[in-house]
Simulated scan of single mutants.
Amino acid sequence: MMPQEITWPTNEQAIMIANRFQERTGFPGVVGAIDGCHVPIKAPAHNAIDYYNRKQFHSVVLQGVCMPGRVHDGRAFRVSPLYDRIISENAPLIPDNFHLLGDSAYPIMKNVMVPYRDNGHLSHMQINFNTTLSTARSKIEQAFGRLKGKFRRLKYLDMNVDNVARVITAACTLHNYIIRREGMQNFHIDVDEIQENANQGEPRLELFDDHLQNIGTQKRNQIMEDIY
């Protein structure tokens, strides 16, 4: 069922999504929000330290792909197929005028918008941009809250680590299946999960490609002026 239930939007769907995001939040060009979500697991018998995260428990990171819990959200993004598809020159996954919204752990790119780094001297326009982005990006935190609220097993997976990705993928597939057919009225949002995921305070991953970051910075500055 996964290929039918977990899909990337077509260009036509992306336009509709972006229009809805802008109507509700005022942020233009958004085709989605990206984040990482820790799924606690039993300490693996081998290389357990790779799964021991900064919150001092063992986990994997759910971000479209499963990674050891020790991996920073931005690093998980950097080594994922999603990153390669976004920066592809031949067949980019996201058109130039669209983007994902990430938190402070992600790098600024042409197709990934993140908040301005708060150095204590942000302008009113930058603060407004950060607030607007945070409001729009909260959808991904709510999605993780619904996922763990519905499938309580994801609060702790006591199984061989080789099976963890299969269980998480099955839960995500069923999550989308139920919403497509029944809506979200039968989903309870795990508020603790939203609070746990918000403001994680992870340092931002810097890209080695300065060109990508410069293009993203210029685009962010233009969006900031447009929404102010």
Rank of each mutant, 00 (worst) to 15 (best):
F208T: 13
G183L: 15
H188G: 01
N47I: 01
A105Q: 07
H175G: 07
F144R: 03
T7R: 11
A45R: 03
E5Q: 15
G102K: 02
I223V: 08
I108F: 07
I189Q: 04
P40K: 09
D96W: 00
K150R: 15
V114P: 09
D210R: 12
D162K: 02
S80W: 11
H175L: 06
P81C: 13
F129K: 05
A18H: 02
V112S: 01
P40D: 01
R153G: 02
S88G: 04
R54C: 06
M2V: 07
N97P: 00
K55L: 05
D50N: 11
D103C: 06
G64I: 10
C37H: 03
Q213H: 03
G216H: 01
M224Y: 03
Q56T: 05
F57I: 01
I215S: 05
F208H: 12
K219A: 05
P3L: 09
R24K: 15
F77G: 09
F187H: 11
M125R: 10
R166Q: 12
K155V: 00
T7Y: 07
V39W: 03
S104Y: 01
G32M: 10
P68N: 07
N186V: 04
H175A: 05
T135M: 05
F21G: 01
M125D: 09
T173R: 04
P203Y: 13
H38Y: 08
F151C: 13
R20D: 09
V161T: 05
E193W: 00
N90Y: 05
G120K: 10
Q56H: 14
Q195G: 00
Q22Y: 13
M67W: 10
T135A: 12
H46T: 11
N97L: 03
Y156T: 00
M1Y: 10
M224S: 13
G26E: 05
C66H: 04
I108M: 14
E225T: 13
K150M: 15
D190I: 04
N214D: 11
R204Q: 15
D192N: 15
R146N: 05
E23N: 10
I189L: 01
P92V: 05
E196W: 03
P28D: 03
R137T: 09
G26K: 08
N53T: 07
Q63N: 14
L133T: 02
Q195Y: 08
F208K: 14
R181H: 13
Q222I: 12
E89N: 08
M2E: 06
Q4V: 09
E225N: 14
T135F: 06
Q195M: 14
L147G: 01
Q222R: 04
L100V: 07
E182Q: 15
M67A: 12
Q222F: 06
M224C: 15
V61C: 08
L122Y: 13
R70A: 10
L205F: 12
G32S: 10
I215Q: 15
I15G: 00
M2G: 09
R24E: 14
E202R: 02
L154Y: 06
R204P: 11
N186T: 15
A143K: 04
P68E: 02
I94T: 06
N186L: 04
I227C: 12
R78V: 00
Q63S: 15
D50H: 07
D35K: 08
N199L: 07
L212C: 11
R85P: 00
R117N: 08
N221F: 01
H58M: 01
N176R: 14
F77H: 08
L133R: 02
V114M: 07
V39H: 07
C172N: 14
N53D: 02
